[in-house]
Design a protein around this nucleic acid. Sequence first.
DNA 1: CTTGACCCTGACGCGACGTGAGGCCGCAGG
DNA 2: CCTGCGGCCTCACGTCGCGTCAGGGTCAAG
Lengths: 251, 251
Amino acid sequence: MNVGEVAALAGVTVRTLHHYDRIGLLTPSGRTAAGYRQYAPADLDRLHLVLLYRELGFPLEEVATLLDDPSADPAEHLRRQHRLLRDRLERTTAMVAAVEKEMEARSMGISLTPEERFEVFGDWLPEEYAAEAEEKWGGTDAWAQSQQRTRAMTKDDWLRVKAETDDVEARFAEALRSGVGADSAQAMDLAEEHRQQISRNFYDCGYEMHAGLGRMYVEDERFTAYYERIAPGLAQFVSAAIQANATRHGS
Amino acid sequence: MNVGEVAALAGVTVRTLHHYDRIGLLTPSGRTAAGYRQYAPADLDRLHLVLLYRELGFPLEEVATLLDDPSADPAEHLRRQHRLLRDRLERTTAMVAAVEKEMEARSMGISLTPEERFEVFGDWLPEEYAAEAEEKWGGTDAWAQSQQRTRAMTKDDWLRVKAETDDVEARFAEALRSGVGADSAQAMDLAEEHRQQISRNFYDCGYEMHAGLGRMYVEDERFTAYYERIAPGLAQFVSAAIQANATRHGS
DNA sequence: CTTGACCCTGACGCGACGTGAGGCCGCAGG
DNA sequence: CCTGCGGCCTCACGTCGCGTCAGGGTCAAG
């Protein structure tokens, strides 16, 4: 098959295929004497995967690394795409619910708080993150462990975990409001609880790794945003408390 | 509220807010003496709408026109967003189903045809299109009519329409395969049937408007892709048949 | 042997920001 | 009082995923 046919079949432009060829994401397996690109069935398979990952928000470069990973067979890709699509489904459902909630509220003359309204944008444990998390930490033991455990979670498990998390976060916020320092025993104890919670629910999180996480809370804007939405200054506070706790344990 | 706080609340970067300010999409309603951006609650409302439309794939410029349209009250936006989100939900569900189908097939050692695999990318009556269609034709009578009628459709209605459409398309494909010309009576009759189908189900489609549609089938790559997926050469064929039919009626 | 559809390779443009650079607030601590 | 230090400001250039010509070869049908 030549470019035009493939483009029509897959619903993309010819230019897109040229682009994928040039960046090495999808090189047609053959060329005619005149230089025409010739796509084999295997190329179509690959294109299919590419388009799905693209749709899910992966940058093309990462799609390439995913597809060129020799340790990932086709079934692996299907499973991953299935997971990501279901995440997306969940997120979209949540957004629909949020809009319906707002419509309801409007029709009753009530108005929601800003926090309520942006809720769905803040609760980004969603696909966008799933994609990136995998790039950053995919392949690490922690990641594998986390994947394994979360896959085994039922909806109830998940709600329990969420409740636990919310609880610690709320108590962090309270500590912050009450004015105690991030290096106070109270704050450090909360940090320790946070660490153990992660270890229990996701992956073995040692002090060093926990400290790394803490740093991320202030360096990655989205994590910062997550904590700032709970209370202004909370990202810094939690991060500092985690460092203090790690230091306390290390010394 | 200043930029940082708003950014944290909404889960976007400060730079994004700067950008929205510069392009006039979201201008903070005030500035301090020092030039600091000051966001009022109304600005947050607007930001919320912006982010939802953005998430739904609208280009920012179009978001601006949507939001600045004085004839669109907040409830209107909510309804539209609700609609678009539900479209997205449907599409994602279809994609999940497609992946599951492929997993099933793999596990049974069967392999799908390329057409089957790209199906979900071809059946783009989805959000992506909804967004664009509204930009191109929003405000025209045809669009309004179509909106009104499709809103009133039940799921069964929709399936019936889809079946009708598939039928005519299949007969077009058959005509093409049988080798009759696009200007044959057979082809023109099919074109006429196509026109009446649109008139019945969507909006009054006169010969001139139909000819315009036909042109689009070959000029817009995605329409072309849609027909090419049914049979190679079908986009041209249908388009030509429509022109011929319009000419026949006009002369 | 022409014609028209399809293919090629540059190369520039664009949308939606990311990412510094260089410099001005503003307020807590010495 | 001034000195940090985080937050804010405005350029301004960089990036990603293509869109869109420009200039030219290719191929099947008539």
